[in-house]
Amino acid sequence: MSEPAIRLDGVSKYFGDFQVLREVSMRVGTGERVVICGPSGSGKSTVVRCINRLETHEAGVIEVFGREVGNRTTPEALGREIGMVFQQFNLFPHLSVLDNLTLGPMKALGLSRRDAEERAMAYLTRVRIPEQAGKRPGQLSGGQQQRVAIARSLAMEPKVLLFDEPTSALDPEMIAEVLDVMIDLAEDGRTMIVVTHEMGFARKVADQMIFMDAGEIVETGPPAEFFAAPKSKRCQTFLSQILSH
C-alpha cells in the first residue's frame, strides 16, 4: 500500500454528552480516493471536519502525512496540505470569482498578484469556467459556483482534497457538471476524501468505500465488493434505499 496521506486511529468526538464519533480509524494512501457514505447524522461531515481541524476531537490520533494534528493545530495551518469543498460552496460573495481564487495564494502563500491570477486562471480553465472570472459568485448558477469553489481550493495546490456532499445543494441538472470536474481530478491521481451519496461517482473513482452509521465506521472495502455484497445489515439497508431512487 502507498504511503498514508491521512491516518485516523480511534478518533472519538463528543458534542456535550452526545458521542458523534466512536473510535473512527481509517487510512488514506497518497493518490487514493475514498468515498464516505451513510445516513444523515452518522458523523460523515464531522470526520472530514476533524481532519482539517474545523472540529476538535477528544480521543484518538489524526495524522496528516505522518504529522500528528492535535487540537492546537488550526485549520489555516493545514491550508497548504488540505483543501475543502463545502456543501454550501461558501464562496466569498463580496469578491469577484478571480479574487475568490487569488485571496488564499496571495495572503497565505505570499504569491504576487500576477502569479496568483495566472494560477487562478489556470484552475478556472481546469473547471471549465475561465470566462466567469470577472463575475460575482451571486451571478453564477449553483453548479458554476461549486466549480469555482473547487478551483478555489485547487489554487492553494493542496495535497489532499476534502469534499463534504459537494452536490447535495445543487439542482439535478447541475450535478453532472460538478461530478465531471471531480472525476477529472480523480483521474489526475489526486488524494481525495469525498462524502457523497452519488454512488455512480463512487463506483467510477473510489479506491475505498467507507460506510458510517451512528458515529462509527460499519463497513469498508473496495467498491466492487462493497456494492456487490455488503456484509452488514445496516449497509445493505442503506444501499438498497439509496440505489432504489
Binding site: 485549520p75 489555516e76 491550508g79 483543501g83 461558501n90 488564499g104 497565505a108 481550493s153 492553494m156
Partner: peptide
C-alpha cells in the same frame, strides 16, 4: 461558513 472557508484557504483569523 465564511470564516471556515477563509481558514481552509490558509487565512489566519
Amino acid at each position: 461558513g465564511q470564516s471556515e472557508a477563509a481558514a481552509t484557504v490558509g487565512l489566519s483569523r
